[in-house]
Design a protein around this nucleic acid. Structure first.
Lengths: 247, 247
DNA sequence: TCTCCGGTGCGTACAACGTACACAGCGATG
DNA sequence: CATCGCTGTGTACGTTGTACGCACCGGAGA
């Protein structure tokens, strides 16, 4: 990455905590740069040019400002990523009127997958930062509240919530990884990918060590239908939770 | 990251496919560098100094060789990562004697979590590369074979397999992310983390927008028992699959 | 035996990265 | 009018991935 030390910077312990600063409107004079503008610009870059294109220099260029300017507002790239995650996560809408825990969790899961597919750079974000942003916490709050009404103990509620979240993230991440791998090589379909990948696979398959893999990977008919696969997995997870917790 | 272009490098389409090259013993004369040695050194660095420490220069230093030497054997960092993933994944052992699909999948899931926790750098690897390595495919093969004997259609087999895999990866990744976030700040326990994180959380919580989150996160007693949480989630997923597929 | 030649490893070099640090300008406040 | 704190600027350093050309060696063909 880069030089210098970063330990103990702690993302604003003495300064008023990024999120607090974000919500008070325009505290200082001559403020052309705001957390809002910074977040918006960064997300725009990431969406248009990929997550790797979000560099402090490119961001400054987009903001029409010197490379170091943004550092007055964010502690570094970690803060910037948190800002970006928070911004796009605001799109996640509470399912209107749904009170059933299953409906709520399912809705958020599907929305989260869509969101991550729409902003693939979310897949490579450091996970802990994902949890501590206002809009992510609002999502968690809504899901925990939906589970809370079932009369479960706290541990079960947290475990159920995290189980679904883990599946959603793992699933979306895999899907995005595959997609980017394809796009990086210019393949546009699953079949084309398999054809292009053949030279790399041919040796492995020719060893005859993966007969089942070979057979199933070829004979599956919905193997490129990720949406179906995701929904299937999600329903399995929800089924399992319902059964195991008796709700 | 770095300069230059990388599109279309394709990781060895004309050359004999990394994995093929890895298995033939010592093809060329004066070969002091081998894929085995490279992989071993890279893994050692990653385990001891973290995944970010695996740079081509550090690798060369460990191998007692010039910075560019390894490029004769791997196409770049992508290949190196694939090599590393493959190497540590060889530790995954087929559960001896188990024929029940559930036992097989469960065993691999638990082993995979352990493996990822033992080699946390696995969490940040690009996912597609994870699937196309010999030892990962051997793991997939074993699991698919276990599912195959249940008489399911190919799509169900693949979906079930990928559902579990997604959960395992998402879960382990989250856990590793949290752990590294803690370690980066020198916190050693969940309580210490919560205390240290308080300044950042205090504003968010003081808004009163996350009452359920607040309540449950505090009252849960096993919230730091990740192994239990993982096992719970895993059993939910397996329950759901069994129920939905009728196996 | 001498000559090539393909596979290895080395050295240099470059563009781009994150960010530390000192400085400059402005608005509100005394 | 002087002062202060915050905002944006400029320069600079150390580190990254890797392109490119050269040097060397061991075995094959003459």
């Amino acid at each position: 990455m880069a030089a210098g030390k970063k330990e103990g910077q702690e993302s604003g312990t003495d300064t008023p905590s990024l999120w607090e600063r974000m919500e008070r409107p325009a505290p200082a004079p001559r403020t052309s740069l705001t957390l809002e503008r910074i977040a918006a610009a960064a997300v725009e870059i990431a969406d248009e040019e990929g997550g790797a294109a979000v560099t402090m220099r490119r961001l400054a260029e987009k903001l029409g400002v010197a490379p170091m300017a943004a550092y007055r507002h964010v502690n570094g790239k970690d803060d910037l990523w948190a800002l970006m995650i928070d911004r796009v996560s605001r799109e996640l809408a509470a399912p209107d009127g749904a009170t059933d825990w299953r409906e709520v969790l399912r809705s958020y899961a599907l929305q989260t997958r869509d969101l991550m597919l729409a902003h693939p750079w979310m897949a490579v974000m450091p996970t802990p930062v994902i949890m501590l942003t206002p809009s992510r916490m609002a999502v968690a709050e809504r899901q925990l509240a939906a589970l809370a009404v079932c009369g479960l103990d706290a541990d079960s509620v947290m475990a159920a919530f995290r189980t679904v979240t883990s599946f959603v993230h793992g699933s979306a991440q895999t899907e995005i990884g595959m997609r980017e791998y394809q796009e990086r090589h210019g393949w546009t379909s699953g079949d084309e990918t398999r054809r292009a990948l053949a030279p790399q696979m041919v040796y492995l398959m020719s060893t005859g060590r993966y007969p089942t893999y070979d057979q199933y990977a070829l004979s599956a008919t919905r193997k490129d239908d990720r949406a179906w696969e995701f929904a299937f997995g999600l329903d399995c997870v929800l089924d399992g939770i319902a059964q195991r917790l008796g709700i």
